[in-house]
Amino acid sequence: MTVRVLAAGDHFVQNRLLIDALRSEVGGELDVRELTLPWPVVPFGPVGEVDEASDVEDELIDALRGVEICVTQMAPLTRRVLEAAPDLKLFCVSRGGPVNANLEAATAAGVAVTFAPGRNAVATAEHTLAMLLAATRRIPQTHADLAGGVWRGDYYMYDKVGPELEGGTVGLVGYGAIGRRVARMVAGFGAEVLVFDPYVETPGSVELDELLSRSGFVSLHARATPETTGMIDAARLALMPPGSVLVNCARGSLLDYDALCDALDSGHLFGAALDVFPEEPIPPGSRLLTTPNLVMTPHLAGASKETAVKAARIVAADVARYLRGEPLAHCANPAPANL
């Protein structure tokens, strides 16, 4: 019997990538419908009781009629959607965590939810290194001056130049797939690496306060949990050596952004680089828009062509397992007994 699938892609993990991956993993036994979500042209946000989703509940409900499997990145799996989609059995989220899915409601409805861990690890690690170097070497600021016709020789003054990675100490807060890659990259520059991760023991492992006090460069790679919310606050920023650099390409909730702005305004930190924020997009009037020595990108760290392709392949592989009656590799909730 032909299985009906909804490919609810967007302008990053496109439907063609999802469908190509499904055809490669499964073959031609699928009846695939398509729904294109507006992300990232339209930012994600809270939808119903889930977060970081495209606001397309009505469109998704229409598209899910008679559908057994949905592959997506940003579609909202809310209680309302589940109640309107009785045929749905498998909901595959092509991102590192299924934050746009109500796992409790999905489990109660007999819907397995999968995700795509590690899809953007390489892209995020490379972006982290780029941000670290950009903040340390003042690349965005000096480019902006030159583009505006201004040649500023004062950037060469001793008090305005930054430190080198070689011979320095890089502290990594979190040592998962991304943190491990960043560690290899900065070690290649000749830096010492310290690690804080309560779930991992590795050479260079230290407690968080020791890491902050010893590291001239700190990069955040922890997951967003109640325990990590606000973990880098004013007191911990004060532990960092004067003239150090902080990078956050992980989650906005890890960092006290007002305290960061204070540390930059005072000159305690040489610079900072951010890809994630407490509110996205950044609202007008935010201190982040006027604080000096701050490099920012709009939540782009995981954005690469390879990330999108990997994401599609990871979820398609779990679709194939489901159809073969095998255990799912990346199931986020207790898989129903009939899977």
Rank of each mutant, 00 (worst) to 15 (best):
E34W: 01
L289Y: 09
A135C: 12
L6C: 08
G243M: 05
Y158E: 14
A250L: 05
L260N: 11
Y155C: 00
H268A: 10
V309P: 02
P163W: 08
G27A: 02
A177H: 10
L37H: 11
L18F: 09
P86S: 07
A272W: 01
L90I: 00
I19E: 14
R119I: 07
P198C: 03
E164P: 00
L294I: 10
G171N: 04
L323T: 01
L35V: 05
E166C: 13
F217V: 01
E104C: 09
S94T: 14
G179I: 07
R80G: 04
V81D: 03
E57V: 15
E25M: 08
M131C: 05
V245S: 00
V170G: 01
E192S: 13
L246W: 06
Q14A: 15
P327L: 06
R214L: 11
A303N: 15
M1P: 13
T36Q: 11
L132H: 04
V41F: 11
T290Q: 13
L260E: 02
A109N: 03
D197T: 00
R214F: 09
T225G: 14
C70K: 11
G110I: 11
G28A: 06
V200Y: 04
L133W: 07
Q73N: 15
S215K: 05
G285A: 00
A101V: 02
E306C: 11
F196D: 08
R65Y: 04
N15H: 02
A259T: 05
V41Q: 07
A123E: 07
A177K: 15
H221N: 13
D209Y: 12
A21F: 11
R251G: 09
